[in-house]
Each structure stands twice: as C-alpha cells, then as structure tokens.
Amino acid sequence: MQSPASQIACRLADNAEGVCRHYLSKGHKEGRYWLVGDVHNTPGRSLYVRLAASPDGRGAAGKWTDAQNGDHGDLLDIIAVARGCRTMRETLDEARRFLSLPIPAPSEDRPVRRTKAPTGTPEAARRLNAAAKPIEGSLVRTYLASRHITNLTGSEALRFHRHCWYRASDEDAPGVRPAWPAMIAAVTDLDGSITGIHRTWLALDGSGKAPVAYPRRAMGHLLGNGVRFGQSGAVMMAGEGIETMLSLRQIIPAMPGIAGLSAAHLAAIRFPAGLKRLYVARDDDPAGAGALTTLTERAIQAGIAVVPLEPRLGDFNDDLVAFGKERLAAILRVQLQPSDAGHFLKHG
C-alpha cells in the first residue's frame, strides 16, 4: 500500500502542469516539460519538470531535474520550497489544499523530506576545488583545444579533477560510469572567496564532454557570483558560459571577464567597484535576451554602460570554431567601442 505522501505525489503528478503554473509561475511550458530557472522559481531554463511520462518509461510525470547542478526530486519538494514548509505534515497539507482534498486531523509531525535543492555548500565546493590540480598538461587543455581555445592566460579559476563523481539522472543510460575526469571552475564573489564550483565532465581522452546526460553541473552559492578571468577593471565582459568567455579572450585576452553560468545568474551578477562599461556576450536564445534586458536595467541604475556582443551563431565558441580567430576578431571589431577595439583587440 502506498504511503499518504506517495499517494499525494501521484495525484500531483497527474496534474503536473497545474502544480507548475501555481508554484513555478515564472516558468513556461515547452513541449512535455515545464522550464524555470530553479526550484526557487527564478526565471530561466535550468530546471525542467516532466509534465507527462516519457514514452520509454524511464521518466515519470512530476519528476524534476536542475541541469545546472543535477538536483532532482518530485512535486512535493517543489511545494516544500515554495511554501517554506518545515515538516512533512505542512507539505502534505499544502498539497491537499492545492488538490482540494480534505485535511486530516493533526498528528505527530515528522521532519520534512527536504528537497535536494540546493545541495553543495560553499565548503564542499572549496574542498572539491582544493582536491583538483592545475590544468597544465591535463585533459582540460586537450578539451579546450578541441574547442579552439588555447590561450588560457588569466584562467587560474580553472582546475582539473581526474576522477570527479557524477550522479546519474533519469536521462542517463543504465550503468553509466560513476566518475569522469572533469574541468573544475571556481565560482567566486567580489572579494575572491570561493562560493561554489562548476564541473564539466570530460571524455576519458579529453576529446569532448563525457557521454552523460548532463555533463555540466554547478554547486554552491552562485547568485551574484561567477567564474572570473583576469583582474576586474573599468571595462569588462560578462556572459553565460565558461567557453564563451574563453573564446572571447582568444581575441581580447586583456579584457577581464566573468561567466555567470546561466542566463538567470548572468542577469544577477554583482558589479565590481570601478566598473564603467560592461560588454555582455549573450547567447542567441530567449533566455539570453531576457538576461541582457535585466542586466542592462541594473547596470543603468549603477551608472554602468552596457554594450551587447552578438554572436553570429549560437554563442561565441560556435563562432570561434566555425570562423576562426581572424574572422571572429572582425566580428568583434565592429561591436566594440573604438577606444576599446584599439586597446584590447589583438587580431584582425
């Protein structure tokens, strides 16, 4: 016989879209999924909820996964976070109210089965970063070179872990390896303290990403922080992805940059003191457009000028691989302010 919690979780799964519209209202439906930034209802696309069971039976309706950090759970977890429930009883009562079910008489509370999001504390992130090694001679360099990224000046935030644990998701094939080599990127605040890390799992020979469902995941405190390249200055650039920033630094290596790691986090980055002009390398998708709008509004209030950088393809790493450095330099030259082009641009 199913427990009350399991029964209610099944009822919620049967009405997964309604649950998402109510508790994750800043997301949207896309095909068989509800997409939102995270379990806290941040705008974005990182977290997805299955609205219907997958045809192969491997994924059940109502299950969610955050692609940024690998956290996952069911709709009771979503409700617990949304309403700040402290006990399982509070969570179930809230779910019953949503489902218009009778609420039973009070009984002894049990601790709530807390959602797995967020997992990974800054302390855990710092331990993982310390366990990693410098990237010289590692598979990180092999992988980045396959993406045409070879100049890694100012990339001290990147490290290499030979056997980084990978938690499989419902999307992974049975028997997927539990550990892979990984590129570790330190997420830091404005003071340089590590608040989180980002992992990119790599193929065993470094020729590409590992053949897993979610080869990129982050942990720790990310909001407002990012992966930093170079020292902060009056002119900087920011973007979603690590490889986007590294690709731009192949052409403008002296311009400091910060990778926010997602559209939602890019929109929330904290501005360093003395910043006057920020180039924003947005991804060519709706989330990237939204991040640029939000970041621009915040920057204007802080007296910072924002200049968008538009890739020709999906992102600037796509441009670098497809067109090469000389053509990418030409693409950037017409988008940079003339004074910045003269000072930073090294190609073309």
Rank of each mutant, 00 (worst) to 15 (best):
M1H: 06
Q2D: 13
P4K: 09
A5D: 06
C10G: 11
V19N: 06
C20N: 02
R21S: 04
Y23R: 05
L24N: 00
S25R: 15
G27Q: 09
G27N: 08
H28K: 12
K29D: 03
E30S: 14
E30K: 15
E30A: 15
R32C: 03
Y33G: 01
H40N: 05
G44T: 04
R45P: 09
R45C: 09
R50T: 02
A53G: 09
P55N: 15
P55M: 13
P55C: 09
R58Q: 11
R58N: 15
A60V: 10
A61C: 08
A67H: 06
Q68H: 05
N69A: 12
G70C: 02
D71V: 03
G73L: 08
L75Y: 01
D77L: 06
V81M: 11
G84V: 08
T91I: 04
R97E: 04
P102N: 10
P102A: 06
P106Y: 00
D109A: 12
T121N: 05
R126A: 10
K133D: 11
K133C: 10
E136K: 09
G137S: 11
V140I: 10
T142N: 14
Y143H: 08
L144Y: 02
A145Q: 10
A145T: 08
S146E: 13
N151V: 07
L152D: 11
G154Q: 10
E156V: 04
A157F: 00
Y166R: 07
S169N: 03
E171H: 11
A173Y: 07
V176F: 13
A179N: 13
M183D: 00
V187W: 02
T188V: 14
I194E: 00
T195C: 08
I197R: 00
R199F: 11
R199K: 10
R199M: 05
A203G: 08
G206L: 06
G206I: 10
G206D: 07
S207K: 08
P211W: 09
A213D: 12
Y214L: 14
Y214S: 06
R217H: 07
A218S: 09
H221T: 08
F229S: 02
F229C: 07
E240G: 06
E240C: 04
I242Y: 02
M245C: 14
S247T: 10
Q250E: 14
I251A: 12
I252V: 15
P253Q: 02
A254K: 06
A254Q: 06
P256F: 04
G257N: 05
I258S: 00
P272M: 03
G274S: 12
G274C: 11
R277I: 07
L278Q: 04
D283T: 10
D284V: 12
P286V: 14
P286I: 15
T293L: 12
T294P: 02
L295T: 02
E297R: 14
R298V: 05
A299E: 01
I300T: 08
P311A: 11
L313G: 01
N317P: 05
N317T: 05
N317E: 01
D319A: 02
V321H: 01
G324P: 07
R327L: 12
L328K: 08
A329S: 12
A329K: 06
R333L: 09
R333I: 00
Q335P: 10
S339D: 15
L345N: 04
K346C: 15
H347D: 13
